[in-house]
Design a protein around this nucleic acid. Structure first.
Lengths: 248, 248
DNA sequence: TGCTTTGCTTGATTTGGGACAATACTTTGT
DNA sequence: ACAAAGTATTGTCCCAAATCAAGCAAAGCA
């Protein structure tokens, strides 16, 4: 029932992923033309901060290409990544005028933005839009709560294996490939970003990756390119059921 | 702008909190009568599991009284609490037919339930309902992400201080009292439940509470009744900005 | 071509919190 | 009033991950 299954982003509806992920539930599109009028694009270079926590945010947006992160920090500089934005992910909070997190570009990114007010007005009149956003927000909530289990209860080794399996899964689903057996993909994050995501130090991340490599769970080519000879083995290392992930 | 501010639950709309928290945005109530027809109450005793992760869930509900927890577990038994349900909180996921978490009664609880199908059908026709649920889900997402920062980056002492400050704040807001200076309240959780919430062991929870008491940050009467002589001091211990909590 | 910067790895040492254990307090039931 | 079960505190030991520190490799640049 996922929307991606029904309507692969790249095949059906022009250039703007938000149509798929946030707006069109059954591809009824009459109201969407209103959004076209308030749509604009913004791009950011790798390393740039898109918006700071607490800043005024008068738009909502969809990531078109590239990767961005959501982070929270304590005053003394300790940093925790709380979300990862991939192409077609939605960012911004209808009904709120301040950003709650720092959004930082990990790679060069392009975002498709909509002015918040008109977007909210459309939402008032379009039940499907609010419902679609509700579904997406419930998905994010599930992901956040799954991450809470990881942060609170998993060992460093399990954390790394979990992250690798998530990246592998997402990579495979983008390329419409199988999820079992032999997989290969690139890590979109530096060791430091992985540490911020997993609640570890970058040294521990490095050590555990080396350990998984030494134990034959993964193979590395350079620093970033990972091969997983046996996905089931990785899932076991991650402390997950082998059919993995969330129920329901 | 919070709904509670505008319409304190106990004053305006009969006996069902869901009217306030999920349904009525401006107290327009014509559609709500439909829900009355599919509304029923269920009660559970302290310690009972309301629903297991993965079970079929054909209702959504609002907590009327008592406290329940949302938990996730690994196969080997490690447990992480991912949410706390207090009176007027909403549980259940429109559009999904399986529970994603274990829901367990911490005290005796009463829940006001609605059959899922009619609820979803009403949502199709009522933009305010989907919007209201979206706002509530965004709040939960913020809370989950704030908790991720706590789980990933805070020390045991900071975790305890954070939990105490959250309980204090919630208690104060329920009783419409001040949030600064001298506060007193009861802990609604056992040491073990606190440990599951904070990603610690119950021994560490006990030790850190003793340490905060020894250092004069809190005073204890029995095991559960806490007095905070200086709320600002507690917030500093929690590693939070003294005007504390999330922005926007 | 060598110099600096950035990202990563590995080693040595320390430490915060987990594991295990003993004891005490507090309910609940008979 | 007592036993039994559940809940909480405190002590001792130990280990996983943090911290501190050194060195390597690739990329950018003068």
């Amino acid at each position: 029932m996922s929307h991606d299954d029904a309507h692969p982003v790249s095949l059906q509806c022009g250039d703007c992923p938000i149509r798929h992920r946030a707006v069109c539930a059954r591809c009824e599109s009459s109201e969407l033309d209103e959004l076209e009028a308030v749509k604009y694009y913004r791009s950011f270079e790798a390393g740039q901060t898109v918006i700071w926590s607490g800043d005024k945010m008068d738009f909502v947006a969809s990531v078109v290409s590239g990767i961005a992160t959501l982070t929270q920090t304590l005053e003394d500089g300790r940093t925790q990544m709380v979300g990862l934005l991939l192409p077609s992910d939605f960012v911004g909070r209808p009904g709120r005028d301040r950003a709650a997190y720092n959004v930082t570009a990990t790679t060069d990114i392009l975002m498709c933005c909509f002015r918040r007010k008109p977007f909210e007005e459309l939402m008032e009149r379009t039940p499907h839009l609010a419902q679609r956003l509700l579904q997406m927000t419930l998905d994010e909530l599930d992901a956040a709560r799954e991450w809470m289990l990881l942060l609170g209860r998993k060992t460093a080794r399990e954390k790394i294996a979990s992250l690798l399996s998530i990246v592998a899964r997402r990579d495979a689903s983008i390329r419409h490939r199988k999820l079992r057996g032999h997989l290969t993909f690139d890590l979109p994050l530096t060791r430091e970003a992985m540490a911020d995501y997993l609640g570890l130090t970058l040294e521990t991340v490095s050590r555990q990756i080396s350990a998984l490599k030494r134990d034959g769970v993964i193979e590395l080519e350079g620093k970033r390119h990972v091969t997983v000879p046996d996905m089931d083995r990785l899932l076991i290392e991650a402390g997950e059921d082998s059919d993995g992930g969330l129920i329901g």
